[in-house]
Design a binder for these strands. Structure first.
Length: 298
DNA sequence: ATCGAACCTCCAAT
DNA sequence: AATTGGAGGTTCG
């Protein structure tokens, strides 16, 4: 009887696990052990509880198999490689942006910061919840939704709730979601849950699809505008040329990039950046966001 | 077309 | 101790 599955992932590219897990793209990671250099993070990836720990050029992975759903080492390896985007060519990205002073400064501080590849449905709900909210509250809402109707998983470490599918959330309905504290977002999450569970929208089909196709599908959902659509595309649909413009990105673009006279609104800023950065847009966004949010006040 | 105001809830700052 | 302001946005008028 296997109790847990351990894996050592050697890194060939820079990776900064701590910055990556807490860079505002994923909301259900927690630090379960905090040591001087090597902290242990616990989260749920594709329904499975995982702990991660980085030591220099390795990431240590632990998975806790369930009786009904065992996991092989190679499956786990694939899972983590995909989620953490281990093989992204960051060095290449750093080189291509070598002449960009602001980016280089961010890269210097947050070297190894990665985009994550999350599950589309969970990602969509999280970013609908992000509207006019702060990160601790987004986290709280995601936890409450999971506790309310997420499947209970019993692995070798104990019990936990993984994130519910669209059908389960649709069953909660708008009022159920309001009771969890979603506020005006309840209507939107419910609507999304309805159309996804009724298969009027297949999020997985948008993975790697043409940008506009994914974009149009997503903004047809109530509560999903330009920013949220781009977040979902960037963090779960392999749309690396996405460029979500939030308050921090708006500031840094206005301060450092776009000429002062130009009075462009958010969509204009996004298109401007996408034209400039192309397929690097997503990574550029993440590095700009991290620096501007963490280092400068309003 | 464009521009504010309103939207739920919670928590931190008066 | 009660009140106000505001948070990674979107929709509606």
């Amino acid at each position: 009887m296997a109790t847990e599955l351990r894996l050592n992932l050697p890194l060939e590219q820079p990776y900064n696990l701590a910055e990556t897990l807490y860079s505002g793209q994923a909301f259900r990671w927690s630090t379960i052990q905090s040591l001087e250099e090597e902290s242990i993070y616990e989260g749920i990836i594709y329904g499975r509880r995982i702990t991660l720990c980085q030591e220099k050029k390795n990431i240590l992975v632990t998975a806790y198999p369930t009786r009904e759903n065992p996991l092989s080492e190679s499956e786990l390896r694939g899972l983590i490689n995909s989620y953490l985007r281990i093989n992204d060519d960051l060095e290449g990205f750093y080189k291509r942006t070598a002449s960009d002073e602001y980016l280089q400064s961010s890269i210097k501080t947050y070297r190894g910061l990665h985009l994550l590849k999350q599950e589309p449905w969970e990602c969509l709900v999280a970013f609908i919840c992000s509207a006019n909210n702060n990160i601790p509250r987004i986290r709280l809402l995601m936890d409450r939704i999971s506790a309310a109707c997420g499947p209970v998983i019993n692995d070798t470490k104990g019990l936990y709730n993984s994130f519910p599918d669209a059908k389960s959330i649709a069953l909660l309905g708008e009022s159920g979601l309001r009771d969890l504290g979603l506020g005006f977002r309840a209507k939107y999450v419910n609507h999304a849950a309805q159309i996804v569970s009724q298969q009027q929208l297949n999020l997985k089909k948008l993975i790697g699809s043409p940008y506009l196709e994914a974009y149009e599908s997503l903004i047809s959902i109530r509560g999903v505008g330009d920013k949220v659509a781009n977040c979902v595309m960037l963090f779960s649909l392999d749309q690396d040329n996405s460029f979500p413009v939030d308050v921090w990105i708006r500031r840094v673009l206005r301060e450092e990039y776009v000429p002062k006279e130009e009075t462009v609104r958010d969509v204009g800023l996004r298109e401007w950046a996408q034209k400039k950065f192309g397929m690097d847009s997503g990574y550029v966004n993440q590095y700009l966001f991290q620096k501007r949010r963490l280092e400068t006040n309003v």
